[in-house]
Each structure stands twice: as C-alpha cells, then as structure tokens.
C-alpha cells in the first residue's frame, strides 16, 4: 500500500523556486561589482561564457533592484515559517552538532548507525538549512551596511566597519554558494521522490 503525504506547502515551494533566478541574479551581479575591486580572491575577466570585466554599472543596477525582490521573497518565506509553525522543523535542538556530524558519517556510509531524528529534516539538513537562513540574514544586514555606510552608519558600527562588513558580505555569499553546491549534490542523491516533493508538494511512501 502506497501512502501519499503532503510535504511542502505551495507557498514554501513558490518561494523556494523564486529563489533560484533571484539568488542567481544577485550572485552574478555581485560578482560584476566585485570585479571592480578584488581584495579577497582574484577573479578572471571571463569565466567560461560569462564576461565579468567592466560591468560595474550593470552589476550595481541589477543588484540594487533585484535585492528588493529577494528580500520580499525572504519575508514571505519567514512569514510562512512563523504562521505555519514549521520553524520548529528548522530550529536546531541542543545536540544538533554531534547529531549532524553522526548523520553525515552515516550518510557517507562511514558509520552504520544513524542518530535518532524526527520531522521533515534529518539533523544534517536541519543544521544546513538553518545555517542558510542565518547566512541570508547576514548577507542582507552586511549588504545594507556597505550599500549605505553613512545613512546606516549604526549597522557599520555594529559590524565593525566598512572592511569587516564587506568581508562578511563576501563570506555569506561564498558560504551560500557552497550550500547550494552541496544542496544540489544531496538532491541528486536523494532521488525523484524527494525532488518531486519540492515541485508537486507530495511524497510517497511504500
């Protein structure tokens, strides 16, 4: 007997998929801005088919328009988490670090025993998704601080100055890129049933 279970609410799926073009645009335009001054990593003028050089104005124009859409999408997602109570699925419990570590060992088939868990997400997912939320908030706050360092000077002071804020923004972006990379691998490994849940909303259990 196959059991069909609703997994991801429509609102959650909408905001998830909206993130794909919006976040892509933000990262791409951010790299165009970064090209003009490269304090951490030196990037090439062209990255495969992507021309990165001398596009600062274009990068800024996209970055500072799309940011509104991405923030609005983020707020929709947060409101959904709050009102549905689904934030409970994401907020880490006390033993999240050892549990996530043990789950990763289990997932990599190094260990045979999985830590006990319940809910939508395993401990590694819980930690990864929660971190992604924190990184997004960090990217928005540090982004605002370097975007308007005089008008929002309190944010700059809070973060420890222009250079620090710029580094935090860069760090959050790079960590989110790493998250997306691991996320794609894990989605591919988890298979169709899991992927379909994010598209059509339901999963099946035999």
């Amino acid at each position: 007997m196959t059991i069909v279970r609703e997994k991801h609410h429509l609102l959650l799926r909408l905001s998830h998929w909206l993130n794909v073009p919006l976040l892509t645009l933000m990262i791409w335009s951010g790299v165009l801005i970064y090209w003009a001054h490269q304090p951490y990593l030196t990037i090439p003028d062209d990255l495969g088919p992507f021309e990165l050089h001398h596009r600062l104005a274009e990068g800024m124009a996209w970055h500072f328009t799309v940011m509104w859409l991405l923030v609005i999408n983020g707020l929709i997602y947060f409101s959904y988490l709050c009102f549905s109570g689904e934030w409970r699925e994401l907020v880490p419990h006390r033993r999240i670090f050892p549990d996530a570590f043990r789950y990763i060992l289990f997932d990599l088939k190094i260990s045979r025993t999985s830590p006990e868990w319940s809910g939508k997400f395993n401990p590694a997912q819980r930690l990864a998704y929660f971190s992604a939320i924190l990184l997004s908030i960090g990217a928005v706050i540090s982004g605002l601080a370097i975007y308007k360092p005089v008008t929002l000077s309190f944010l700059l002071t809070l973060l420890g100055g222009y250079e620090v804020a710029r580094f935090i923004h860069f760090f959050c972006m790079m960590s989110l890129v790493l998250f997306i990379f691991l996320h794609l691998i894990q989605v591919a490994r988890a298979g169709w049933n899991n992927f379909r849940a994010m598209v059509a909303g339901y999963e099946m259990e035999k």
Binding site: A57, E58, A61, W62, F64, T65, W68, K148, T151
Partner: peptide, 18 residues
Amino acid sequence: SGAPAPLYKGYVLNQKVW
C-alpha cells in the same frame, strides 16, 4: 541613461527610499 529601463526605475525607487 545607459541603464536598462526597469533597473533605472530601480535607481529612482532607491533614491526615494534613501
């Protein structure tokens, strides 16, 4: 002014906000 029209409107909106 050299910027794609919708993004130029983004500049104008941002100016109003700030």
